[in-house]
Write a protein that binds this DNA or RNA. Structure first.
Length: 945
RNA sequence: GCCCAGAUGGUGGAAUGGUAGACACGAAGGACUUAAAAUCCUUUGGCCAGUAAUGGCUGUGCGGGUUCGAGUCCCGCUCCGGGCACCA
């Protein structure tokens, strides 16, 4: 029988489906394992070969775990909300739900071909009301919570209300937008709206007026991770800073836990580092500076408290509220002009220009240690959003302060022994501190840092600051709260209405609040988000929401929130929903959650490092605090698959003609390279007929060939439709089969690495499968498996293979496993091994990689059950042992002769043998042995004096 | 500027401190074939010597070091990729 992949794969696809082999249920009797691939956004272009890379790797692992006896959960779904479908809707009027639905069907078709062991009964779609009900639910829970720093967790807002009623803000240690201070009495006299406004300052999901990234082209605000280099990630449109009232998530409250959690999870160092950078923890101190001649103090943040004696000026951010307060009348005009100027410069200019600019406020601060007067300046190199928006400038030890001091001729005072600040600042945090003022000249208690290392000096200063009430030790984070509103249509609607201008949560029993139909997907005439176009908009599947005897669906009395949630909302807890996707009563049943716990292996792209992977961790920690998720970190192990790039092919048209010249001869002509569809090129050789048929303008193309062939040029580029280099998995499955595609994608190289797709290598994997198949059949095509005792060699080959593949599994170095399979099959072919025992185990080993052909072979071997229920074989070292080993013996590194010893010979045995060897005596003539090094089974080295 | 990860044949890539280049592609040669495809076999890091079997030298970005022995460990560079960035 010949290996017919099409027939086999068709047969088993139907059988798997019929027998529901991938259905997973909770089973207390078996250990669980949760494998998850990041769910895709179903784009119109369909899957290319890059997409399944991670899925295949995850699937292999899932199948391996199952063969090892684990109860494996491996679901799949769709991240269905997103901008492309909406942009498409704006252009064509096609409802995004429809486009999304079509794209999903296409994705499903493609995914089904490749033979994944997904339990499709657990499929989720973020745009499905049964799903986003729980996204809305989680949002409401965040609205109704605050973050307590003392107990390090989220708490219900009622607790805070109670606290305000009894103690006001006294001794409060919780996450907040700004520091408020009031007594219990104050609280009680506040109106309800005032109380709501106060609570907004503490809620984890809160409505805040903040600087946001506004993208005019997309008509929406964007989160920090959606903006790179001043333009939107999607579309590359310019983004400006704008103050707007928006829903935000107080993710900054979780900064420390997000940081600490990284040490408990098995993720690549680079992605952890990316998250650490993004969180940006910096330990320092806040210090108060008094303003000269006034009873007014302002606070600065510094990580270099030790440099207090080198402060020669202060700088305020232009946007800082302090600027107005700290501008002397005579400088008012100059400061205002400067601030106007900075406003006009966009974020991008500020980054690109890096021109030193600033203006003096006319006022002076008092150095709390020395009493010195320090001029206060305003400059845009200080950011309003970080720290306190004000700094103490130490030009000797900070390059930005240095540039500023040089530009404006301000003094520079070095504080580190032996440093040279004549050309540049000394930013290093190493060295011995000097130049503290002489005792007596110092304003405070003869405080001196001289002779200390910088590290010790920082600590000493911090201690001093705290003791003398000059300031306090403070940790700052770069991580900002996530802006949670988008002025778009295709997203989860907020379950929020407004009463007296204050947001109210739609009653939980009315969830989900469905996304309304709109007449058009653009903003309304009055500039409201697209949801403003809806006429009937607050409707619920269950019942109408009535408040104060008025239907909430009443625009004028209870306006609804018109923004929708961002893309990351739906993807933040989907792994929990997979555990219990049809549950109507809870996001996930407690018992079910206890069983599946968290994702054991998560596979996806590293581009989500500062987006989804942070939001999801935050979201899960919040749910953990609420007792919904039972594990604090949602993804225990993360593997980032690399990107697959495209390998484009080119033809070379001679300018002004319809004549194409082969790659090797192109230098003899004046040519234009043109991208050519890689599907009509095989092994870089162009199919001339297919090319003529490809496009009408090439119908009568002429060719200049080399060796009778047209050879195309090539280049590695991003895989994209416009470069005609998209390798389509369907086509490969058709030609070679899904098993070959799976093997080849893994064989390409380590999965974590980015690499170009090279169609040319795929034959090798196809050949391997055919050879493997042929092990089971004789020349006449009859099944030729025998029950004879296996030969020693074939067992050795087998156990070598089991060992290698099992070891590779944990590391997911599947490329070397595939190589091991190839070697084993080669060896068995040579050994003429047809032994059932050996070949059966081989089939089990190969199953995760090539499930179709293995099912077929397993059946041909006479099994009634499916190979997925087989047992992963274990290896026996005994078969791998050699009887004897040949060891090269070298003198001072040069090989002289070899000896043969037993495989498990001890070192001293080998040594004795070497010494007894007659050639040893000859070499040693007149020399002394310094040392004999025996490397077991490898080499013997004798060092001579 | 700071942080992280990497650099091995024509190509993708293998190598618990122990025979570098597994495996695959590509290339060259051969077998079968009218021919082609398919399949199979041989060779394939570089240089040198030899008719040949073979032997020698050299070789993992560059320069040092540790070691009997380094692609692997340490120090210093160069280059490429990724992250952060007037974050005080």
């Amino acid at each position: 029988m010949e290996y017919q992949h099409t027939k086999i794969e068709k047969k088993w696809r139907a059988l798997w489906d019929e027998k529901k082999v991938y259905r997973t249920t909770e089973d207390e009797g078996r250990p669980k394992y949760y494998v998850l691939s990041m769910f895709p956004y179903p784009s119109g272009a369909g899957l290319h070969v890059g997409h399944p890379l991670g899925y295949i790797a995850a699937d292999i692992y899932a199948r391996y775990k199952r063969l090892q006896g684990y109860n494996v959960l491996q679901p799949m779904g769709y991240d269905a909300y997103g901008l492309p479908a909406e942009q498409y809707a704006i252009q064509t009027g096609q409802h995004p739900a429809l486009t999304t639905e079509q794209n999903i069907s296409r994705y499903r078709e493609q995914l089904d071909l490749i033979g994944f062991s997904f339990d499709w009964e657990r499929e989720v779609r973020t745009c499905d009301p049964g799903y986003y009900k729980w996204t809305q639910w989680a949002f409401q829970k965040m609205f109704n919570s605050f973050y307590c720093y003392s107990c390090q967790k989220a708490q219900p807002i009622e607790k805070l209300v109670h606290r305000f009623e009894t103690k006001g803000t006294e001794g409060l240690n919780i996450a907040q937008s700004e520091e408020l201070s009031f007594t219990a009495e104050d609280w009680k006299t506040m109106s309800e709206v005032e109380q709501q406004q106060v609570l907004m300052n503490y809620r984890i999901a809160y409505l805040g007026e903040t600087m946001v990234n506004w993208c005019a082209e997309l008509g929406t605000v964007l989160a920090n991770d959606e903006v790179v280099d001043g333009v939107s990630v999607r579309g590359g449109y310019p983004v400006v800073q704008k103050k707007m009232k928006q829903w935000c998530l107080r993710i900054s409250a979780y900064a420390q836990r997000l940081l600490e959690g990284l040490d408990t999870i098995d993720w690549s160092e680079s992605i952890k580092e990316t998250q650490r950078n993004w969180i940006g923890r910096s330990e320092g101190a806040e210090m108060q500076f008094r303003v000269k001649g006034e009873d007014f103090e302002f606070t600065i943040f510094t990580t270099r408290a030790d440099t207090i004696f080198g402060v020669t000026f202060m700088v305020l951010a232009p946007e800082s509220e302090l600027v107005e307060r700290l501008t002397a009348p005579e400088q008012k005009a100059a400061v205002e002009t400067y601030i106007e100027e900075t406003k006009r410069r966009t974020e991008l200019d500020r980054m690109a220009g890096k021109k030193v600019s600033g203006v003096f406020t006319g006022k002076y601060a008092i150095n709390p240690f020395t009493g010195e007067e320090i001029p206060i300046w305003v400059s845009d190199y200080v950011l309003a959003g970080y720290g306190t928006g004000a700094i103490m400038a130490v030009p000797a030890h900070d390059s930005r302060d240095y540039a500023f001091a040089r530009h404006f001729g301000l003094p520079i005072v070095p504080l580190v022994e032996g440093c040279d600040v004549s050309q540049e600042s000394f930013d290093a945090k190493e060295g011995i501190v000097t130049n503290s003022p002489q005792a007596g000249k110092t304003a405070l208690h003869g405080f001196s840092l001289n002779g200390l290392s910088i590290k010790d000096a920082i600590q000493k200063t911090k201690d001093f600051i705290a003791e003398h009430d000059i300031g306090r030790v403070k940790v700052n984070y770069r991580l900002r709260d996530a802006i949670f509103s988008r002025q778009r249509y295709w997203g989860e609607p907020f379950p929020v209405y407004y009463k007296d201008g204050m947001p109210q949560m739609i009653p939980q029993e009315c969830l989900p609040l469905l996304l309304p139909e709109v007449s058009k997907f653009l903003p309304t005439a009055t500039g409201e988000p697209p949801l403003g176009n809806a006429t009937r908009w607050a409707w619920s599947v269950k019942e109408k929401c009535v408040v104060d005897n008025v239907l909430i669906d009443h625009k004028d009395v209870f306006p609804l929130e018109l923004s929708t949630m961002p893309g990351f909302a739906g993807s933040s807890a989907y792994y929990l929903r997979y555990m219990d996707p049809r549950n109507n009563k809870a996001l996930v049943d407690e018992k079910v959650d206890k069983y599946w716990q968290a994702v054991d292996l998560y596979v996806g792209g590293s581009e989500h490092a500062t987006g989804h992977l942070i939001y999801s961790r935050f979201w899960n920690k919040f749910l953990f605090d609420c007792g919904v998720s039972c594990v604090e970190e949602p993804f225990q192990r993360l593997v980032n698959q690399g990107m697959i790039q495209g390998r484009s092919n080119f033809v070379y048209r001679i300018k002004g003609t319809n004549k194409f010249v082969s790659h090797g001869l192109k230098d003899d002509y004046d040519v234009t390279p043109i991208h050519v569809d890689i599907n009509i090129v095989h092994a870089d050789v162009l199919d001339l007929e297919a090319f003529r048929a490809w496009r009408p303008e090439y119908a009568d193309a002429e060719f200049v060939l080399e060796d009778g062939k047209y050879v195309c040029g090539w280049a590695i580029e991003k895989m994209s439709k416009s470069m005609f280099n998209v390798a389509n998995p369907d086509k490969i499955v058709e030609k070679y089969g899904a098993d070959t595609l799976r093997l080849y994608e893994m064989f390409l190289g380590p999965i974590t690495q980015s690499k170009p797709w090279d169609q040319n290598g795929i034959d090798g994997c196809y050949r391997f499968l055919r050879r493997a198949w042929n092990l089971f059949f004789d020349k006449q095509g009859q099944l030729a498996v025998t029950d004879d005792a296996p030969s020693k060699e074939s067992l050795k080959t087998l156990h070598k293979l089991i060992k290698k593949v099992t070891e590779d599994m944990e590391e997911m170095s599947y490329n070397t496993s595939v190589a091991a399979f190839m070697i084993a099959v080669g060896e068995w072919a040579q050994q003429k091994c047809r032994n059932r025992e050996v070949l059966e185990k081989f089939v089990v080993l190969l199953t995760p990689f090539a499930p179709y052909v293995c099912c077929e072979l397993w059946q041909l071997l006479g099994h009634d059950d499916i190979v997925f229920d087989a047992q992963w074989p274990t290896f026996d070292e005994a078969y791998l042992k050699e009887d004897s080993v040949t060891l090269p013996v070298s003198f001072n590194g040069k090989t002289r002769f070899t000896i043969e010893v037993g495989a498990d010979a001890a070192n001293d045995e080998v040594e004795k043998m070497v010494l007894a060897h007659e050639q040893t005596a000859r070499y040693l003539d007149g020399k002394t042995i310094l040392k004999i090094i025996v490397v077991p089974k490898r080499i013997v080295n004798i060092v001579l004096k």
